[in-house]
Design a protein around this nucleic acid. Sequence first.
DNA 1: AAAGCGGGGTC
DNA 2: GACCCAGCTTT
Length: 352
Amino acid sequence: MQPVENFAPRVLAWFDKYGRKNLPWQVNKTPYRVWISEIMLQQTQVATVIPYYQKFMLAFPTVEALAEADQEEVLAHWSGLGYYARARNMHKAAKVLVDDWDSQFPDSVEGVCELPGIGRSTASAILSISRGVQAAILDGNVKRVLARFHAVPTWPGEKKTENIMWELAEHYMPSERCGDYTQAMMDLGATLCTRSKPQCLLCPLEADCLARQTQDPTQFPVRKPKKALKPEKRLQFLVISNDDNQVLMEKRPQTGIWGGLWSLPELASDESVVMHVEQRFQTNIHNITALTAFRHTFSHYHLDIEPSHVRIGEVNAVMEEGKYQWFALSDVMTLGLPAPVRTLLSEVVSIE
DNA sequence: AAAGCGGGGTC
DNA sequence: GACCCAGCTTT
């Protein structure tokens, strides 16, 4: 990374001209009021938060009022915002502040982080905005701005990447106007440097933004590596039994999946069990029972197994030498079986 | 259909 | 420390 000298001044100058400064929590910026807004804004966008915030402040104008309220009442005011654990944490934290901190927020980030529901980023937001403390935030907006400005090549979800971004965030935090800078960075991410369709032409950082110099700035932040979704295959498994309580097993070829194990006769999922069994084994079917389908997952694909229990009479067909073999139900579990076949057979055996 | 959000809880 | 979760939006 190659940090830029005048990063903060450019961001602040932009904020002075274009930033939002009259949102409900941007006037009378007490730690309490900033705190509530930050928690609400973690999960919801500004337009939605405003009415909630105003009602909340009327109901609980001070940390004492919040601490004294019933949880019921707090949750009622949160109703519709989601993430209710955060409202509960907030209520808990209010009590801690009143009981242990004389209703004042601690003056260090570490201290504020001790409160339930507040981590490093939220603590820094509260202290920088309400008290001008020189502490950087790293919320989703700031992550996006920094990831783009430096074209950070790795996913911010990785610990290593996150550490790098925290360093960048701290590096750019100025020593003056810390609160404005925090607001400015959030604004920049929320209004210009948006996830899709960023307005690079209006951005004060455009000239040095490394993402801007690529084909597509929205390629940053690098997206979460999506676990390649595994292909799905479907097969029918046949548990074929005769009047002597034997089950027909099929020897797998030595190579490939389940090589050399004894498995069950298989059938494409769209084939008719009746027609197939009658033709393959020249026999008559006494009875078919569909068993419960289940999924077996390999390292590289899902196998959806549709098992049927087929009772048949005498087998007349000449079967390939050694490929098929009858085993007594009492013996079959001693064979080398693929795990899903073992599971399936153990259920059938227990029924018999 | 899946990622993103900031912190908490679990192992 | 790595991973999953909450609950709703956005893509």
